Amino acid sequence: MEIRALTKDDLDAVADLWNPLIRETTITFNPVEKTLDDLREWLAAPGPALGAFEGGALIGFASAHQFRGGLGYRRTYEHSINLAPEARGRGLGRPLMEALFEVLRPTEVHSLIGAITATNAASIALHARLGFSEVGRIPQAGWKFGVFHDLVLMQKIL
Rank of each mutant, 00 (worst) to 15 (best):
I3W: 01
I3D: 00
A5I: 00
D12M: 07
A13Y: 04
D16R: 14
L17M: 02
L17R: 04
N19D: 03
I22E: 03
T28F: 11
V32N: 08
E33S: 09
D37P: 03
L39S: 09
R40V: 04
R40L: 02
W42V: 12
A44I: 00
A45L: 14
P46R: 05
P48A: 11
A52Q: 04
E54P: 04
L58T: 01
I59D: 02
F61H: 03
A62Q: 06
A62P: 08
G70T: 02
L71N: 14
G72V: 06
R74N: 14
R75I: 06
T76L: 06
T76E: 07
H79L: 10
S80K: 12
I81S: 10
A84L: 05
P85H: 05
G89H: 10
R90S: 06
P95C: 07
M97A: 01
R105N: 11
S111P: 14
I124L: 13
I124G: 10
H127F: 00
G131F: 02
V135Y: 15
R137H: 11
I138F: 14
P139W: 14
P139L: 13
A141P: 06
K144G: 15
F145A: 15
V147C: 13
D150V: 05
L153N: 04
M154V: 01
L158H: 11
